[in-house]
Design a protein around this nucleic acid. Structure first.
Lengths: 169, 169
DNA sequence: CATTAACCCATGCGATCCCATGTCCACCCA
DNA sequence: TGGGTGGACATGGGATCGCATGGGTTAATG
């Protein structure tokens, strides 16, 4: 599939290296032979946004909508491209997260990769857990509006089961 | 007949593997040659929602309506893509259910596949039985209300009467 | 010369593949 | 009609491969 799906938690070693989940790597490689990752601090969350070629293209597309040499375009360019780092994937499928990136996301010994379709995010596991809770709650609220989950009107057993911890699938 | 229908109960082995019912497999294969299952914890039931390519397309469609880089989109993405796991079907028609998925649905030694048309669900047999029992009862109750005229429990004792009470905690 | 980044190798665990067994059902043939 | 036979499917176990991870060695950098 050409989308980033699912979440994976990997270990960040003493050198600042972390393995990119193999399924994500596969997606990246399909986008471009020289698989590398465009990575930048998320604008409004303690996390990192990341993606491959297609993400860069999307950003280009956003900017293309604005007139050349406009203030908006300049600002947006800086906001989107200014902090981007191009991370190279080594022979073992790992990347090095720079100090500044680690700081923004508050990464310690473990990092969680979260698939978001066209891009993915990198979180500290604890922080992501909170984020996930909020996101799920929001979906429960909006679900009726968009009509996914077509839950029968007959309520289930009522128990929602134990909420899973952030870990590898 | 590209629909998931009927229910099947199969065994979950020590490795976390379970055979996908052959009829379901057939539907999946018709949707995409590389038959794999998109699976995620149901939002309000101790069960797993699952489907094939067409389910993924549905998700894409939902997100396509939202602008790039909007908060709504990010939130939905997390809940929809982040929780989804892509299960590969092996040569023998089996999938591996990860620990987190098993936990959410409370799966032990057996799992029940429940066809729901476009998608299907995976339940622990006892829990599904319970859900089905409640469903039947609700229907019966509704019939009574319609047929006899409301036999309300708003009466003084607050007791539900001779009928066995729904075991919903 | 010290420090950091890129490369290579080793290892253990889990996932994936492959084969073997058992069971049920449809079909065939005497 | 009844016994035999083959196929589809579920299931169990062993073998193998890939992936994540840790450590060490060499090449760039200031």
């Amino acid at each position: 599939m050409d989308r980033f799906v699912s979440t994976f938690t990997n270990r960040l070693d003493a050198k600042g290296r972390v393995s990119v989940p193999a399924p994500f790597r596969a997606v990246l490689e399909r986008q471009s032979a020289a698989a590398s990752i465009y990575c930048y601090p998320a604008l409004d969350a303690p996390a990192l946004d990341a993606g491959g070629e297609s993400l860069a293209v999307t950003i280009d597309g956003l900017l293309a909508g604005l007139p050349d040499y406009s203030d908006e375009r300049d600002e947006l360019s800086v906001a989107l491209y200014g902090d981007v780092q191009l991370l190279g994937i080594d022979g073992d499928g790992r990347v090095v997260l720079s100090e500044s990136l680690r700081a923004h996301a508050g990464l310690e010994s473990q990092v969680t990769f979260v698939g978001l379709g066209q891009k993915f995010q990198i979180w500290a596991p604890e922080r992501f857990e909170e984020r996930r809770r909020v996101a799920r709650e929001k979906v429960r609220e909006t679900r009726k509006l968009i009509g996914i989950g077509q839950r029968s009107k007959i309520s289930g057993t009522g128990d929602a089961g134990p909420d899973d911890a952030p870990s590898n699938p």
